[in-house]
Simulated scan of single mutants.
Amino acid sequence: MTLETIELQTKAFADARAVLAERVRELDDELTRIKRQRLRGIKAAIATAAARQDELQAAIETGPALFEAPKTRTFHGIRVGYMKGRGALLWDDSAKVCTLIRRHLPDMADTLIKTTEKPLKGGLNTLSTAELRRIGVQAVELGECVVIKPVDSEIDKLVDALLASALEADAE
């Protein structure tokens, strides 16, 4: 194996990737064009559906006696009528509620308060190896490994994902 051979293979890979990127870019452009074409119709359909929903709600509200027994009915795949409303729990200050739970319901605190605690990798990456050891974290060096990673745009990230899925399909 020579460096020239690797350079030629790298060029072949880069060329194949460029073709793939161009095809994905064309697809993305076409999807954007289609979205623009259809968006006006979708917005109109949303407005129409919202208006019909408001009309239906008003009709149901004017005829509650129609839904005494049974409370709901299904027409055209849509369930309409009345049902018992579900309440909501509201509070302004989560920390205050947690403090009051701990004070007034200490036995239930574990079931009423969600506690999430885990180390943050981003912060740990800023520590020295000695500091990591002191807090029980091991820094594992992976050694050298092959890198084939273009420095590209969002479209290229999609191309990478497509390549990865193609490789997984070949492996299976």
Rank of each mutant, 00 (worst) to 15 (best):
residue 5 T to L: 15
residue 6 I to K: 05
residue 6 I to E: 09
residue 17 R to M: 10
residue 18 A to Q: 09
residue 20 L to V: 10
residue 22 E to L: 06
residue 23 R to F: 11
residue 24 V to D: 01
residue 24 V to A: 04
residue 25 R to D: 04
residue 26 E to T: 05
residue 28 D to F: 04
residue 29 D to H: 07
residue 33 R to N: 02
residue 36 R to C: 00
residue 38 R to H: 03
residue 40 R to N: 00
residue 44 A to Q: 00
residue 45 A to C: 01
residue 45 A to R: 01
residue 45 A to G: 03
residue 47 A to S: 00
residue 50 A to F: 02
residue 53 Q to D: 09
residue 56 L to Y: 07
residue 59 A to Q: 12
residue 59 A to R: 10
residue 65 A to D: 08
residue 73 R to N: 02
residue 74 T to F: 01
residue 74 T to P: 01
residue 76 H to Y: 05
residue 76 H to P: 03
residue 77 G to H: 04
residue 77 G to N: 09
residue 78 I to A: 02
residue 78 I to R: 01
residue 80 V to D: 09
residue 83 M to A: 15
residue 84 K to Q: 15
residue 85 G to C: 09
residue 85 G to Y: 13
residue 88 A to I: 09
residue 90 L to A: 11
residue 92 D to V: 08
residue 92 D to M: 06
residue 95 A to C: 08
residue 96 K to S: 12
residue 97 V to A: 08
residue 104 H to F: 09
residue 104 H to T: 08
residue 106 P to C: 06
residue 107 D to E: 14
residue 111 T to S: 13
residue 112 L to P: 04
residue 113 I to Y: 06
residue 115 T to D: 00
residue 115 T to G: 05
residue 116 T to H: 10
residue 121 K to I: 03
residue 122 G to C: 02
residue 123 G to K: 05
residue 129 T to I: 15
residue 129 T to A: 15
residue 130 A to Y: 05
residue 135 I to V: 07
residue 137 V to P: 00
residue 138 Q to D: 10
residue 139 A to E: 05
residue 139 A to P: 00
residue 141 E to P: 02
residue 142 L to F: 06
residue 143 G to R: 03
residue 144 E to F: 06
residue 145 C to H: 09
residue 146 V to Y: 07
residue 147 V to M: 11
residue 151 V to Y: 08
residue 151 V to A: 11
residue 154 E to C: 09
residue 154 E to A: 15
residue 155 I to F: 02
residue 156 D to K: 12
residue 159 V to I: 12
residue 159 V to M: 12
residue 162 L to P: 12
residue 162 L to C: 11
residue 164 A to S: 04
residue 168 E to R: 15
residue 169 A to D: 07
residue 170 D to E: 10
residue 172 E to R: 04
residue 172 E to F: 13
residue 172 E to V: 13
residue 172 E to M: 14
